[in-house]
Amino acid sequence: MTATLTTVRPVPGSPPARPRTRRRRPVGVGAVLAWVVVGLVVLATVFPFYWMIRTALTPAADLITDAGRLFPSDPTLINFRRVLGLATLEETVAAGGSGASIDFVRYTLNSLFYAGSVAVVQTFSCAAAAYAFARLHFPGRDLLFGVFLAGLMIPPIFTLLPNFALVRELDLVGTMAGLVAPALLMNPFTIFFLRQFFLSLPRQVEEAAMLDGVGSLGRFWRITLPMSRGPVATMVLITFVAMWKDYLWPLVAGNSDETRLLSVGLGVFQQQSPNTSPDWTGLMAGSALSVVPVLLILLLLGKQLVQSLNFSAGK
């Protein structure tokens, strides 16, 4: 009785109900349209990267004649070679370059070291603190946690200026130590996120271990941490990406060859290119090189990354 009534009743404020067969899975026109939209979004996402690679493979002399072509009429690797500093000066100048090059291998290693060390150390340091906040009893716990959370409200630029002054006073500007120091041990969001997760874990396993005489540190390291592999990996990955993209701090604190990151190196390379007629083929070759490590991460860890994001938003 109710069923027959509800099937004919249109939802208030929305168009009258369509036949039932259209509903569960979109088929026909709707589905085709949806797939077309998704296809366009994917195309819009990927095309700028394709165009970057296409330009990088184009000789500078062909830029105007090839402006509308999807494939270079005369593909070349010269732009990659000169950006990497593998071409002679004559070749470089002939190809429209300024002679500037990117120390690609070194900057990539710097970026990997910066992002990797901060991601791992910071996550573990924050996991330890998060465990103390979630499971241990000590005076002033809630107050301290509140103060840590307040750190979330500080815009990075406000602490960046004094941090630069501090690193400079310690004579650490342009060293890896000065570069990683501010982010190495602490990130309020990571503590907040992992504490929430630890609180959601069942206590029984830990209580059993406690009866067996396992101390707090042992329970953190041998029980809680292994049970939290997913969220810990999530934070490592998200922190890695954030540090990989970091720009302002590495720009001011890491502006020496030993510590220059790939992002900063690319910016410097651009500034060496003449403003009036930018060296587009070289700039795109440099950009393409800076995207390669990211592409590798995406190919190797893409699914893990997507799951991590699902996880971080779902919690």
Partner: peptide
């Protein structure tokens, strides 16, 4: 679809 999020803003 995540690709642009991974790339530094410089590029």
């Amino acid at each position: 679809l995540l690709l642009p999020w991974l790339v530094p803003n410089v590029a």
